[in-house]
């Protein structure tokens, strides 16, 4: 009896120690992730001179001054830049997710000759980095007179093999073909079935991919920098780069940090609103529902 009890106690201690270790690691990792956000907020509250003195964890008093300076900077128009980025990011996120889901649906729900080949081809495209085709892309846009336009920033993002692949895998776990058959028998056309039956079933996956697409488009510097040179069309990352490369007389790191802080706000707000769906989407398929 005593021996059994001691075994039990020993087991409890072992479990507690293990939990403490696990929680300690998790807390450390969380702190590590949040540390850089904190550092950014701290830096956004420091003046250029204070920033030059080096690293500190204590926030300073220049937060609102930096905000006003950044907002009133004559070389950039923050509200305009944010609106530009928002238009591009939102349009890309919506179109990318919708059309990737539609493509994935085509591969998932239909049987046709060469289906496997099409799938392999789309996956192969995933391996090609955007930089490889950038030069040709810019040349083509020049010829099409599409520079200083949002079209080349939005339309090509529709072809997103990674989003397609995610959607396809998600469909395998949540979308039985019988549901599609049932809709067909019920009298629903193919597009209606996709829009009214399939899309709502993919909500968590759509939320995840919407935010990923939104963030990647919001942060995209490379392609917009190649295509946009009109001041009123510039996006947030271009403006940040512009602030950073300002000449000595205007250079203010406090402004740059403040602008970066402003730039991540929409992403954070979107994440807060969609976080429930995102967690669902990330864990989807792991457990049979």
């Amino acid at each position: 009896m005593n021996r059994k009890l001691s075994d039990n106690t020993r087991g409890l201690i072992k479990l507690t120690v293990l939990r403490v270790i696990v929680y300690a690691i998790l807390i450390f990792l969380t702190a590590l992730c949040l540390f850089f956000f904190y550092l950014m907020i701290v830096n956004a509250s420091r003046s250029n001179a204070q920033l030059a003195t080096g690293f500190t964890l204590v926030p300073k008093e220049n937060f609102f001054k930096n905000l006003v300076n950044a907002w009133n900077d004559s070389s950039i128009n923050i509200p305009r830049g944010m609106l530009n980025s928002l238009i591009i990011a939102l349009a890309s996120a919506v179109l990318t997710t919708y059309f990737s889901a539609l493509t994935a649906y085509g591969i998932h729900a239909y049987e046709f000759k060469g289906k496997r080949m099409v799938f392999t081809f789309i996956i192969a495209v995933m391996m090609i980095p955007a930089q490889v085709s950038a030069l040709g892309f810019v040349q083509m846009m020049n010829k099409l007179h599409l520079t200083n336009s949002y079209i080349p920033l939005i339309i090509p993002s529709i072809a997103a093999p990674v989003v397609f692949f995610y959607m396809k895998q998600y469909m395998e776990s949540v979308l039985p073909l019988e549901v599609i058959d049932a809709a067909r028998v019920d009298g629903s056309g193919e597009f209606r079935t996709f829009n009214t039956i399939v899309l709502p079933m993919l909500k968590p996956a759509i939320a995840v991919q919407m935010i990923f697409s939104f963030v990647s488009s919001w942060n995209n510097y490379f392609v917009p920098a190649l295509l946009l040179d009109k001041a009123e069309m510039k996006t947030v990352p271009i403006m940040i780069a512009q602030l950073r490369s300002a000449d000595y007389s205007k250079f203010d790191m406090g402004k740059v940090y403040m602008f970066i802080l402003l730039a991540i706000l929409p992403v954070m707000i979107t994440y807060i609103f969609l976080s429930k769906s995102i967690i669902k989407g990330v864990t989807a398929g792991s457990v049979k529902g």
């Binding site: 019988e178 058959d181 049932a182 067909r184 056309g189």
Partner: peptide, 16 residues
């Protein structure tokens, strides 16, 4: 299928 005036019940219910 929609023009055949049939209805079908599936093994795994296939509810929306």
């Amino acid at each position: 299928p929609k023009d055949r005036d049939i209805a079908m019940v599936f093994q795994n219910y296939a509810l929306y």
